[in-house]
Nucleic acid binder design. Sequence first.
DNA 1: CCAACCATGTAAGTTGTTACATGATTAA
DNA 2: TTAATCATGTAACAACTTACATGGTTGG
Lengths: 181, 181
Amino acid sequence: MARATQTTTAVLGVLSIEPLTGYEVRRVIGDVLGHFWHESFGQIYPCLAELEAGGLVNRRPGKRQRSSIYEITTAGRDRLRELLAEAVVPQPPRNGLLLRVFFGRTMPAADLADLLDDTERDSRARLEAYSVIRAGMVKEYPYAEHGRYWEATIRAGELAAQAQLAWATETRSALVEVPAT
Amino acid sequence: MARATQTTTAVLGVLSIEPLTGYEVRRVIGDVLGHFWHESFGQIYPCLAELEAGGLVNRRPGKRQRSSIYEITTAGRDRLRELLAEAVVPQPPRNGLLLRVFFGRTMPAADLADLLDDTERDSRARLEAYSVIRAGMVKEYPYAEHGRYWEATIRAGELAAQAQLAWATETRSALVEVPAT
DNA sequence: CCAACCATGTAAGTTGTTACATGATTAA
DNA sequence: TTAATCATGTAACAACTTACATGGTTGG
């Protein structure tokens, strides 16, 4: 059976926008999909090799020595459409912050306060990051036609960060400022 | 080196509330922490064995044949406090929904609409589930003193679900109801 | 009496991370 | 000239999932 289909979806997806080297695929996944997707380095090359073996991408020499450019084939585009239609694979929840809050009674109040402060800072940093991404989006040439879809993913992050910020503020006053019974 | 520390934290955490069998540990993690944490079956027993070997829990025979009850030791409580103070291990993002939306231009509009409808339904179901959990919380005897912390984790889920619902509605009108250029 | 649930454990397989090895090219 | 970046790949390891195997207990 093939590699985790979602990795294939991500790789094939970025190659559907423009042909890239393996190194660039990784960079695009990090820079462009980074706020909602992650692939570790060691996944990219084996996945590209499988795609090539299956005729879903073509490999041709790049400008530099040893470098290859991968280009999606028609079969690859069909496969991508299939993959996108498949059911979303749910990520099992593993929220380390909430795990700590749940057992918060066991922690010194100061540690819990720090944790919530960090969360608040993180939410604000994420909100800031999204507005930077949005500003940069205007300049990103090959992605222009995807703009509305990309915008929707940024909006999702923004709303999630706002919710997290509201939660951190609210929880701080409920758990830290009001002493435990 | 020991098992992923966060699994240890979760297991030791539930045992800090009351002594349980391995089977019950799994059930509590599913039922009580389930909305923000997950441990697969095959993790629990090896983790308990390690905890026992390290003197962090004691094992004594349970009521049934072959059953064992694990009880946290003083060393175990100290270790739990340490683990809770450790930095949160961030979960690399892998949001299958946003992956599909990002490449939404490649999908038929009807598929995207279905995806967003599913998301909306899921958000509502989650909101409903949280109010059920909250109602049940009143009756949960051994967790009473953890009530405020538990409540905070539910609130986090609630705010996240609300944000997701708002996003799905907003995105549906932006991407599906307004035709693509 | 039979289905559902309680209970424990293992083994095989998949997935994902990290570190290593190697070297070309480019910009400061 | 030297540091950063581009570029590819592998190997070892760690983490996690799933299926299997086994059998006791309880409630309808």
